[in-house]
Design a protein around this nucleic acid. Structure first.
Lengths: 209, 209
DNA sequence: AGGTACCTTCCTACCGGTCGGTAGGGTGGC
DNA sequence: GCCACCCTACCGACCGGTAGGAAGGTACCT
């Protein structure tokens, strides 16, 4: 029934909708979802933000929940492209861990990246199947961090810490940043990213001496 | 207007409502708010959880938002009583910092303490005035951590890290725990609290040698 | 050039349903 | 008879979503 237009697209583009407009909607929705929360945001607010009526907005989206899912999926794409894949190509585990922390911290401190925050705060707004898909992708990321720590552990390069606690401790530091960091404040995003990287790695790694 | 019943209580108890029932409502509401989010939770769900109708529930509460505020206020009381005040009575800054991290991590890994999670996740559900009051109390806590780090810094006991980044990095690790920790899982809450304490303090403090 | 068929885009007007909250009354114990 | 407690029944507001059509562009035909 509803699969016809979206999954088939029979030969040729099935959806001629303006990709720029869709991107604008995504950005506006991500900003408002992140500010007020998914459930507290009405479709009308998003429509207003992109200068459309609710019905006009529905020309571009399939529903409120689907909009959320697509934003989160896009955010996972960004995280994979900017952090995960670059890190996976680094063989040395210490360098790799440093690349993950620095890369993720850099990404999350940049202005306007509301998708990454939604990615961890609005999971309960998804359907069970959608949530499963997103959390599965997130789990791969956590596994990468945990395995990197385990590799370092096997080489005696880290203190005696459970790799799960280490991975989530590290991620907690980074994912908490949007709650307090102000891009217009005293510290630059680069400074925060650098300091967090040092803080996290110093907590984990042994002194090379 | 609305202050009459609450702040005056004219001579004698103004509200004869059963405190046990109110506590039961608080606990149930905190659990559901924490599971589904404040806005996604209906008053009817809370009423069902305590075996009342919606109107019956309203005999005990002043409104949905007021219920949220009281839960968060109670959570701040708990945090102050269990973590902040005990820590403030410790003169040595290193001991004090350890007491904060260990105490907070211990508190947050305990089963059923949904209020502490709500405290940081549902602030946008409050009215501006209510939010101001809660965030003011939270700011005092952050100041305590920051000042403790600054004191240690003045004594050359910490690495060169901005105390704001250090404080929020540390708090991020702790406040992230409810997102991944499973009380029925492999690790005990004590183990997690201990390991996080070591992880956080090692990232901040210099080796005593 | 004018007609017309079709397309994308966006609107007004409306739907059923749920929300937070309340009016007013019943009931049982003291 | 009073009061604490809890109910049924209802309210207006707002929600996500849709039906159906208007506006305006374009492309092709005569």
């Amino acid at each position: 029934m509803e699969t016809e237009a979206r999954t088939m697209s029979v030969a040729g583009n099935s959806s001629p909708r303006d990709p720029d407009k869709i991107a604008e909607i995504f950005r506006a929705a991500a900003r408002i979802f992140n500010t007020k929360g998914f459930h507290a945001t009405s479709i009308n607010e998003i429509a207003d933000a992109v200068h459309l009526t609710k019905a006009g907005l529905y020309y571009y989206i399939q529903g409120k929940q689907d909009l959320l899912y697509r934003i989160m999926d896009y955010a996972m794409d960004a995280l994979e492209g900017e952090v995960i894949q670059p890190a996976e190509s680094i063989a040395d585990p210490e360098e790799r861990l440093r690349a993950i922390v620095a890369g993720h911290a850099n990404l999350i401190t940049q202005a306007g990246v509301h998708e990454l925050t939604i990615l961890v705060n609005e999971l309960e707004g998804l359907s069970p199947e959608q949530r499963r898909q997103i959390t599965e992708r997130q789990a791969h990321y956590v596994d990468l961090v945990r395995e990197t720590i385990d590799t370092l552990k096997a080489r005696g390069r880290v203190h005696d810490v459970d790799s799960t606690v280490g991975a989530f401790g590290l991620l907690g530091m980074i994912l908490w940043v949007p709650r307090w960091f102000d891009a217009k404040g005293r510290l630059s995003s680069q400074e925060v990213a650098d300091q967090l990287t040092e803080l996290a790695l110093r907590g984990l790694l042994r002194e090379p001496a």
